[in-house]
Write a protein that binds this DNA or RNA. Structure first.
Length: 289
DNA sequence: ACACTATCCTGCAGGC
DNA sequence: TGCCTGCAGGATAGTG
């Protein structure tokens, strides 16, 4: 499921059930997901308190009280489910998909948190907090697109001289961290920029950001903020940690809308689908230049 | 250095 | 009904 808005939505859902609480029990039901679990994974966590739950790009980071960090990535199909025996706080329903419930955390506050991941592209690792910035997953990671750092000028700098199409450049986590296939398509449409355009063409001749670069930075902010406000997008029945569904998928302008009329005012185009770098790109050639 | 592709894995939709 | 193919929100290693 998860791009930045979905991962952030998951983080917000998990926070009250995890932060400040201890792992009472950890059940690891198989040896690996995308990677093998660390040695003694369950024992390593048991008894530890989570001091903070944060997010970097699409990674969830649980700071442990022994200086370690539990790194969690949802891959394509990972999700968390929170249940509690405490009445009224959470749903307590059985998993519809127990075959893919791979990890269960029992927290001291009473929450039972289950990680489910049919495709097993997700993973969990434990690394020292002190050297996390140098870890291979984080060493080369790009700018967080929420907040003020990302603007037209920065996009121009990041994309300088790049011949790669905008679609590929925006998906590159080393440049901007957290965008995935959906929100890249949506942001480009919102900015009226073609996904096929070379990324290095967003600058004016003097190097200052062209209007398109400024529009793109704004579009990224807007689409991510709107998705966050909607609780993310729920495709293929993906849910938030509390069981509720995000609804931003109803606001998609292009993603998975091949053949539909473009909604941009004054545009008579239709949404088309092309393949770039092995992934589907949805866009309107009428208004995206 | 850069940019494709193949790949990991399972489920689901669509065609026949 | 079943079987097959292709595709899916990610990210990496390998290739040219």
């Amino acid at each position: 499921m998860p791009e930045l808005p979905e991962v952030e939505t998951v983080r917000r859902g998990l926070e009250p059930a995890m932060t400040g609480q201890n792992f009472i029990a950890v059940e690891q039901r198989r040896a690996d997901l995308r990677f093998p679990f660390p040695p003694n994974f369950a024992d390593r966590l048991k008894g530890r308190r989570i001091d903070a739950l944060s997010r970097r790009a699409k990674y969830l980071l649980a700071d442990l009280d022994d200086g370690g960090v539990l790194i969690m990535h949802l891959g394509m199909s990972g999700s968390f489910r929170i249940e509690s025996l405490a009445p009224g706080l959470f749903h307590h329903d059985r998993s519809k998909d127990p075959a893919h419930d791979h990890v269960v955390f029992q927290m001291s506050g009473g929450a039972r948190i289950t990680y489910n991941d049919p495709r097993r592209f997700g993973f969990m690792l434990i690394e020292p907090r002190a050297t996390l910035a140098e870890h291979k997953f984080f060493r080369d990671i790009g700018v967080e697109p929420l907040g003020n750092e990302l603007d037209g000028a920065l996009l121009v700098r990041l994309f300088d001289k790049k011949k790669a199409p905008l679609k590929a450049a925006l998906l590159d986590q080393r440049l901007v961290a957290g965008l995935g296939n959906i929100y890249v398509c949506e942001a480009l449409h919102r900015a009226r920029l073609s996904p096929r355009r070379a990324a290095g063409t967003l600058a004016r001749k003097n190097g200052s950001p062209a209007p398109g670069a400024v529009r793109l930075a704004s579009a990224i902010h807007e689409v991510l903020e709107a998705a966050l406000a909607a609780g993310g997008s729920s495709l293929r029945d993906h849910r938030q940690a509390d069981g509720s569904l995000g609804y931003f998928q109803h606001s998609f302008q292009v993603y998975d809308r091949e053949g539909e009329a473009c909604q941009t005012p004054g545009c008579n185009g239709r949404i088309q689908r092309i393949s770039q770098a092995g992934r589907s790109t949805f866009f309107c050639a009428g208004c995206q230049k």
